[in-house]
Nucleic acid binder design. Sequence first.
DNA 1: TTCTTGTCACCTAGGTGTTAATAT
DNA 2: ATATTAACACCTAGGTGACAAGAA
Lengths: 213, 213
Amino acid sequence: RLIIESKQLWDEFDQLGTEMIVTKAGRTTKYAQILATYMLMVDFVPLDDKRYRYAFYSWVVAGKADPHCPGRVHVHPDSPQSGASWMKNVVSFDKLKLTNNLLDENGHIILNSMHRYQPRIHCVYLPPPKCEDFIIGQTQNFRTFIFQETKFIAVTAYQNHRITQLKIASNPFAKGFRDCDPEDCVAEVLSHLNSNQRLLRSHPRNGTSNTNI
Amino acid sequence: RLIIESKQLWDEFDQLGTEMIVTKAGRTTKYAQILATYMLMVDFVPLDDKRYRYAFYSWVVAGKADPHCPGRVHVHPDSPQSGASWMKNVVSFDKLKLTNNLLDENGHIILNSMHRYQPRIHCVYLPPPKCEDFIIGQTQNFRTFIFQETKFIAVTAYQNHRITQLKIASNPFAKGFRDCDPEDCVAEVLSHLNSNQRLLRSHPRNGTSNTNI
DNA sequence: TTCTTGTCACCTAGGTGTTAATAT
DNA sequence: ATATTAACACCTAGGTGACAAGAA
C-alpha cells in the first residue's frame, strides 16, 4: 500500500497546474511515500502528444509534441531494502533530478520542456535468492502507483506566478524569498501555521513544517 | 588491488600518533581508495589490550583495556557495485562515523576512547546469482587490506596539539581555524602549495587540494 | 585531576528563485 | 517574441575544533 505525502499541497499545485524546473545540470524534485515491499523506482510518461505555451495567464496547446527521449527510470538509492525498512521512514525521492539535456550523462531523468508528464512509482518485489526464480525469471512482481495530482509541465523557468509563490511558501530552500516585512510578519506566520496544520493533519508522523515539491 | 589515498598525509599523522574523535552522536572519518571488486566494508580491531593516557607530551600505557564492544562492520553505502564502477572514482568512506556510545543505535562504529585501533578494509566478491553459490555458500571470496599508517587512538578531545594543527591544516571543514594574518598569509599559502603538490604527486587523479582525515 | 559533553562560530556543500543576458 | 542559460544572494544541512562546564 502506498500513500502520498502532503496530498493537500500537491492538490494546491495541481489546481494551479504544477510546473517542474528542468536544467542542464539537473534539478531535484521531492516525492515522499510509505510502502510495503522491496524496491522502488520512478519514471515519467508523457501525458499527451502536445506541446504547450503559457499565454494570457493559461497554458494552451502549441502544436505537436517534440520527440521524447526513451524514458529513463530512477531507482531509489536505498533499493533494495526490506519492506520493514521502507516502512520505517517516510520515503523521499530527493536525489531524483530532472534535466532537459538530451545528452545527459549523469543518469538524470530527461524531459522536454513545455510538455506534460505523469510520474509513476513502481514497486518491484525481488525474490529471495533461490535458483528457480533467477533461472526461470518469472517471479518479477511489479506494482505501479500513479498519483494523478503529481502530474506537471516541465519548464525551464516558472510561467505561472502563483506557482512560484506556492513554491516559495512550501520549499524550505526558498525561505530567503518569503517577504516578511516587520508589518506582514505576523500575518505570514499565522498563515503558515494554518497550512502546516493542514499538512500535519493529513500525515501526523511528519514533524517538520515544510515540504519540497 | 587497493591503493591508499594521501599516503603522505596519513604518514604525517601516523608519525605524530593519529587520534580520532569519537562522540555520542558519531563523528566521521574519511578514507579513500581505489579497488577492483564488488563490495566494500571497514571494521576496526583493537591493536593491543591496553588503555592509554596522554602525559608529558606522549602516550603512555595506563592499564589493561576496557572490555571491547563486539566489532561492528561498516558497509560502504555504494555496495554492491561492479568493479568498474568502484574503479571509476576515488572511493571515500565519508559516511562512516565513530562513537563511544556503547548503546548506539545508529549503526555507527563503537570504539573505546583512549584505546588504539587498526582499521581494516574488506573486499567481498559477490558471486553472480547462480544456484550453487548461494546454496552451497562456499563462494564468498574475502580479501582484507590493512594500511598500517591508518592506525589511531580514539579520543574524545585531541591531546596532542600538533595533531590538532595537522587536522586544521588538512580538513576543509576546519578552514575557519586556520590563522591567516595578513602577514603570515603568504607563507601559509606557500606551505599549503607544497603539501598539495606532495599529495598530488602521489595521486594525480585527485584535483582538489585538501583531504579529510 | 583527568576525561567527557554540549554549545558555539566558522566553514563546506548544495538546493532555492531572481535577474539579466543570451539563444532560438 | 519566446524560451533558456548562467551568475547571484539567500537559504538548509551538516562537518570542524574551541571552549567552558560537567562528570568520574
